[in-house]
Amino acid sequence: MNASIGASQERLREKWKAIVDENGLPGEDPRQIVAACRQLSSNGDARLCGVLVQHLAARADRIVHAMYGYRQRNDSDDPVAQVVEDMIDDILDLQSADGAGFEKSFKGKLRYRLIDKIRRRNVRQNIEQPVPCDAANQPIEPPDGSSLGPEDHAVIATVLGQLPEKHRLAYQLHEAGFTYSSKTGASIASMLKITPKTAEDWVDRATQRIMQELGRQS
């Protein structure tokens, strides 16, 4: 490594040491921290690198937990920890393209990895979404929320959590502005690969179920 690169490494080290000393890491873009860590790692600055990685791990843990619905930790099945630990290894592997990828995308890469872990776990466990049904063995549906308070939203969230996954997705897409069908763009039917009639049916049922629950609570 030539002298000019050695000097720039020293400047980099001083810059990040100052940020750490001033407790400024939370205000820094995590992608910049990853880049700094990888450059410092190649120069053998293990201590400073460790501080940066420790911060990134804590930050990633919070971000991924928030994405994952703050699931109660289960040490035997913890995709959050797996995602964060893989991130730690990749960031410190200078030959890893995944590690370099975290310099461009932090949150996005974490979410992509989390979804991948969940998919693989579900395939291994052959998990199928349970289908909650009412007394008539019909799947259940949600309500309208034009003037709802916090308690109402809590009820809706609970009901949505009990719905069959695809019914819930149909409702979520409907709430997000997707039409039942569309000739030109994305629709509930195209997203879920169902007919428009089925899409409308599922959204209607979800709506009715939520209305029922809100009616019971009031």
Partner: peptide
Amino acid sequence: KLPYHGGATAAEYQPR
């Protein structure tokens, strides 16, 4: 789908 894997709340979050 992600938020529906959960069950705990932000107040119950325990960092590893």
